[in-house]
């Protein structure tokens, strides 16, 4: 029988700790597939900071570094500067990348640090049990916004791709999601482009992936995928916000 699907080699064959229905698993697979397809596992170093994906060091087959909360872009900078010929990626959540690590994110981006940033945005702090994230939507109920996020009190969500797209050091800023097969295909293309950018020395590439957290959203996995479509995409439109390769073509 022909094999139509198999686990990518760049993923270690062990069970993950992610909740059922969480889309981290899909995103891990996409990253691993890109690493496999480019044949770069042996030359890749991943950086996973505090968040649900902090233990991704056990799941990816390449060399892995666990970083402090928010510091992954700085840690990845250190790795990449020391080893400019290796591929370096970070895998960060929304609290990590857009709250505690905003400075590290923005400055790695504006330096044009030649790394890939996988940004998993699920509008909530998952690991600590469902508190407000910088990307939590207005009105969204979380442990620390029990009456819904009130923009008069907690302010507004951050749109990272839009913000980062203004910086000259950014090669790619693209928002995708993984709530349907076509979206998953699109997400993989974006991740591949980000790694290709690094190969070509183009600079900082961020792929923001709208993701689900059925557990802390209090939803079934199916309803969670629907929420991405109905509530998140309207606030966080999918699309390419910056793409140096497209700019080159248009010149």
């Amino acid at each position: 029988m022909a094999v139509v699907f198999e686990r990518p080699k760049a993923l270690v064959d062990i069970p993950t700790h992610y909740c059922p229905g969480c889309t981290h698993g899909i995103i891990h697979r996409l990253v691993a597939e890109v690493i496999d397809e480019m044949g770069i596992e042996g030359d890749t170093i991943g950086v996973c900071p505090v968040g649900c994906s902090v233990m991704a060091y056990d799941y990816f087959g390449c060399d892995m570094i666990e970083a402090a909360h928010g510091r992954a872009p700085a840690t990845a900078t250190g790795v990449k500067r020391a080893m400019p010929d290796k591929f370096v990626f970070t895998y960060q959540g929304d609290g990590d990348l857009a709250a505690i690590g905003t400075a590290e994110t923005v400055h790695a981006a504006t330096r044009g640090e030649n790394i890939v940033v996988i940004f998993v945005n699920n509008t909530i702090y998952g690991m600590t049990g469902g508190q407000m994230a910088p990307t939590t939507l207005p009105g969204q109920v979380t442990q620390t916004t029990p009456f819904g996020r009130d923009t008069n009190v907690q302010g507004y969500p951050v749109r990272m791709c839009e913000m980062l797209s203004t910086l000259d050091g950014v090669a790619l800023a693209q928002r995708v999601t993984v709530n349907s097969v076509p979206h998953i295909r699109e997400a993989k293309k974006a991740i591949r482009k980000a790694f290709e950018n690094q190969k070509n020395g183009l600079g900082f590439s961020i792929v923001e992936i709208l993701s689900t957290c059925p557990t802390n959203w209090g939803m079934t996995p199916v309803d969670a995928l629907k929420r991405v479509e109905d509530e998140m995409i309207p606030y966080y439109p999918l699309g390419v916000y910056k793409d140096k390769t497209a700019e080159e073509v248009n010149k």
Binding site: T77, G78, K80, H107
Partner: peptide
């Protein structure tokens, strides 16, 4: 950021 860059470089 500086000390975390050190962490990254030292890791290699």
């Amino acid at each position: 950021a500086a000390i975390n860059m050190v962490l990254g470089a030292a890791s290699t």
